[in-house]
Design a protein around this nucleic acid. Structure first.
Length: 883
DNA sequence: CGCTCCCGCCATGCC
DNA sequence: GGCATGGCGGGAGCG
């Protein structure tokens, strides 16, 4: 965060910037001496100098501002961002050069980040921060016009409110959840229908490659407007037309919130917005709308609410944005609902200038609750819930899902389209943008395992599995996003990731790296669990499934998928509940925790970082499993692969620190690390809903070794696949004979079931990569200064600890990543999996058969713990036996 | 070459 | 008329 603070800011913002500034004050003099121009004049002097130098015209205030500001900005911004002062100094000489900061340096997103860096995410209720547009503009060295762009978007989310001319009040994110909730509600109302109608159209459009204008009833717009207007209500509010940017921003956000996939393509959004606005959708209008959406998206990205992704379509890849902010607003929801989303919070905020705080207070409370909740319940609680009442949670989820589904059908369709493309792409390469796990047509045939498209692109940024939930954020949104994500996670229990089990799409387990595939086909997973996101889309893909025959078969399943969740099918359910209940993250943890319990020893510790523990278990399992596969992996250094993924994730998380959020970075990393890992499909037991586990082939080896030594933090990414699907595969044979006991009802899975089932029911065995939790930790640093505080608040100490612990624990992951990646990649290459798979499978299968400790499994039956243990045991057994 | 989206003209509306 | 807002789209940077 520090980076940005411009010189000028420091003085102003001393409180915040001091960190950076401190030097200056002292240094400044020195610098001045050394560098006459640099610091000293930068703030004021520069302007004066420039002004004097400048022609008289320059003097005109506006002109001056513009001229100077840019210069200042360039210098400042550049300096801070890249090198800060040093640069500045140098720059002084090369001012001109600096002036020419690349376009990126002037981007609205960057500007917004700078802007946001100046204010705390969660300001004390007591303190009101007023924002002077002129001041900010000068500080940031940009024209006022740019500030308007930012402020308008922020205002749409109630992060700020306009107090008076040129004066805005900074509210921070206290109200954000409420606002989002309101938007979500409003969005469902408006877009629910729209979505449905459009949805059809879109499908058609996409399918046929034709684009139609979506038809949307204007009437619906009204509501939105009204809704939004509250914000605008302010006296002048009515003045300007409707303040389209503000409204557009809200609508844009609504689309995300309503969308199941949480991915909205620009063109779709533009269409929708245009439609709402008017029927006419000239091409020019469309273009303009898109431009505006970019502006909004840049700000939202800076806020860590969305990230850029690409959706591959028939025609090609389309720019899209994925919502990475909080998805559910549980507590808030209640409150909000009580209040009636439409009217309240926002309006008040606006009017009262800073009245917002009331809201904010509520927000705080919420947060507090979460925090306590988290800390108190960490994993166990969650797990319990899950195990105890898997159903209920599911139901909730389902309910949500359903609604969203309907509303978002359109989005879903889009997603499906994307998936299809992705799949296709995947088939080809797998990487392009987002990859979706799809029942690959091709892959399926050949192998049980299909490769996930590897995200070569940063766009997709597949995040490492571990953090499945927010991986994305990390990836794309560097520091900022992470923090946010973290905070959001903490604050918002229900996170998106997990929540969507959805339609038979393969879904990632909320927090866990595992994917659940509704369909039976086997998959090769490469790298990123991140694809969680994709999972959602997949369902739609199911539709797409039509394309692939194989897919179709699964499709049926998929169709069920939604049902599945509700239905006994354990896996989905388990996931769902977790997601619903609270933050996905938590859910993840909990799950992992569960596992740990049994594991006892080392893992227990890790339990805090549920993910880690889980990972460990997994690893263990993997080891067992892997062992068979080992031969191949051995070469690679089996352990690494897993680690790599995790590490990669972690690293990514860490990376976030890097100023360049760089999707690029991420992408690179991802490309290298995560994706590579291939997974072996382990047929599980029938337990859950018949999930099968996939283990990364690559990983396995390493994992094994690790396991032997310790319970490495490594997480093994597992994919939960419906047993049914597996059944189809020859490989599958693996069902564990072990204990048939489905403790809970779930287990009852019709299929064979056994230990697995039990697992599924309560908690899945999912092992999350260790990373899961970790991200939180790492991310924060880089991100906004503000956020740090946040995270802390939200995250329960335990979590944090766990995270840290995990990280620490799994040095392997940390260190190896790169290496692993390399190794993995080669191996991981799409091709590899196939080849690998067979061997692994055999191994796996064998393993299970050999299962040494059936007894253990039986024991497992009882509780979640059982599950975990059972799983582990299985793994172990399998491993042992094979060996 | 197309995606992004910066830049700033200029309309709108209030004072 | 001046000023605050902010709609809008040309056109350039960038990959």
């Amino acid at each position: 965060m520090a980076p940005k603070t411009p010189i000028k800011n420091e003085p102003i913002d001393l409180s915040k910037q001091k960190g950076c500034t401190p030097e200056r004050n002292p240094i400044t003099p020195v610098k001045i001496i050394d560098r006459p121009q640099p610091d000293p004049w930068t703030p004021t002097a520069n302007l004066k100098i420039l002004v004097s130098a400048a022609s008289p015209d320059m003097r005109d205030r506006e002109k001056k501002k513009e001229l100077f500001r840019p210069i200042e900005n360039s210098e400042q911004s550049d300096t801070p961002d890249s090198l800060q002062y040093d640069i500045v100094d140098d720059s002084t000489v090369d001012e001109f050069e600096k002036q020419r900061p690349s376009r990126k340096q002037k981007s609205l997103g960057l500007l917004c980040q700078k802007f946001l860096a100046r204010y705390p995410n969660y300001p004390l209720s007591t303190e009101k921060t007023t924002i002077s547009l002129d001041e900010v503009a000068s500080i940031l060295g940009v024209e006022r016009r740019r500030i308007y762009d930012i402020v308008n978007v922020l205002e749409s989310l109630q992060l700020v409110s306009r107090v008076a001319k040129n004066q805005y009040c900074w509210h921070g994110r206290h109200n954000l959840s409420q606002t989002l909730k309101m938007l979500q509600d409003a969005g469902e109302l408006q877009y629910g229908e729209l979505m449905t109608s459009q949805h059809k159209e879109q499908d058609l459009e996409y399918k046929f490659g034709e684009r139609k204008k979506a038809i949307i009833p204007d009437s619906q717009d009204r509501p939105l407007l009204d809704f939004s207007e509250p914000d605008c209500v302010s006296a002048s509010a009515n003045s300007r037309k409707d303040k389209s940017l503000r409204i557009m921003s809200q609508k844009f956000v609504m689309l995300f919130l309503v969308s199941k996939t949480k991915i909205v393509t620009l063109d779709i959004a533009a269409k929708i917005l245009i439609e709402e606005t008017q029927d006419t959708a000239d091409h020019s209008k469309f273009k303009t709308k898109v431009r505006r959406l970019y502006d909004i998206a840049n700000v939202l990205t800076s806020l860590g609410l969305i990230k850029k992704v690409h959706v591959t379509e028939e025609r090609g890849r389309k720019p899209a944005f994925k919502w990475i902010g909080p998805v559910e607003f549980p507590e808030n929801t209640d409150e909000l609902r009580g209040h009636s989303p439409a009217s309240n919070p926002l309006p008040e905020t606006r009017r009262g200038a800073c009245v917002q705080y009331q809201t904010s207070t509520a927000g705080k409370q919420r947060f507090t609750r979460h925090a306590s909740f988290n800390s108190a319940q960490p994993c166990e609680a969650t797990r319990r819930k899950t195990s105890s009442e898997p159903n209920s949670p599911r139901q909730e989820r389902q309910a949500c899902t359903v609604n969203s589904d309907e509303n978002c059908s359109k989005m879903i369709n889009l997603a499906a389209v994307c998936r299809q493309k992705i799949e296709e792409d995947t088939g080809n390469k797998a990487c392009d943008t987002e990859t979706v796990l799809s029942s690959a047509k091709k892959s399926n045939v050949t192998l049980p395992v299909s490769l996930l498209p590897v995200p070569g692109d940063s766009d997709f940024c597949v995040n490492p599995l571990p953090q499945a939930v927010f991986p994305v954020v990390q990836a794309d949104v560097p520091s900022f996003s992470l923090p946010i994500g973290i905070s959001s996670q903490a604050s918002h229990p229900s996170m998106p990731a997990a929540s969507k089990i959805e339609n038979g799409k393969p879904t990632l387990v909320p927090n866990q790296p595992f994917l659940c595939f509704p369909s039976s086909s086997l998959f090769m997973l490469c790298g990123g669990l991140q694809e969680n996101d994709m999972s959602e889309p997949l369902p739609t893909a199911g539709d797409l499934g039509s394309r692939s025959a194989e897919a179709q078969a699964p499709t049926v399943c998929q169709k069920r998928s939604s049902q599945k969740c509700s239905s006994p099918s354990a896996p989905g359910d388990d996931e769902e509940p977790a997601a619903k209940k609270q933050t996905l993250e938590h859910s993840d943890l909990p799950l992992s925790l569960v596992v740990p319990k049994k594991p006892e020893s080392p893992k227990a510790e890790s339990s805090p970082g549920s993910g880690c523990s889980a990972a460990v278990h997994l690893e263990t399992n993997h080891l067992d499993l892997a062992s068979p596969a080992a031969p191949e992996t051995a070469n690679k250094e089996s352990t690494k692969p897993l680690d790599c993924q995790e590490q990669g994730k972690q690293s990514q998380k860490k990376d976030p620190d890097d100023p360049p959020p760089g999707n690029e970075h991420i992408s690179k990393e991802n490309a290298n690390q995560p994706f590579q890992p291939q997974y072996l499909y382990v047929q599980p037991t029938a337990g859950l809903s018949s999930f099968n586990f996939l283990f990364s082939a690559n990983q396995a080896p390493g994992a094994i070794s690790l396991a032997a030594n310790q319970m490495p933090p490594l997480s093994v990414p597992c994919v939960m696949v419906p047993s049914a699907a597996l059944a189809s595969f020859p490989l599958v044979p693996f069902t564990s004979p072990l204990s048939p006991v489905p403790d809970n009802s779930f287990s009852a899975a019709p299929s064979t079931n056994f230990s697995v089932s039990s697992l599924a029911s309560t908690t899945p065995v999912f092992i999350s990569t260790t990373a899961v939790v970790t991200p939180k930790v790492s991310p924060s640093p880089s991100a906004d200064p503000q956020q740090p505080a946040h995270p802390a608040l939200h995250l329960s100490p335990v979590l944090t600890r766990s995270c840290s612990a995990v990280k620490l624990d799994s040095p392997v992951c940390m260190g190896h990543p790169v290496t692993l990646l390399k190794l993995q990649q080669p191996s991981s290459a799409p091709l590899t999996p196939k080849s690998i798979r067979p061997a692994h499978h055999e191994a796996f299968f064998k393993t299970p058969g050999s299962l040494g400790d059936p007894v253990a499994w039986k024991k497992n039956e009882g509780t979640q713990t059982r599950n975990a243990s059972s799983v582990q045991r299985r793994l172990e057994i399998s491993s042992t036996s094979p060996d």
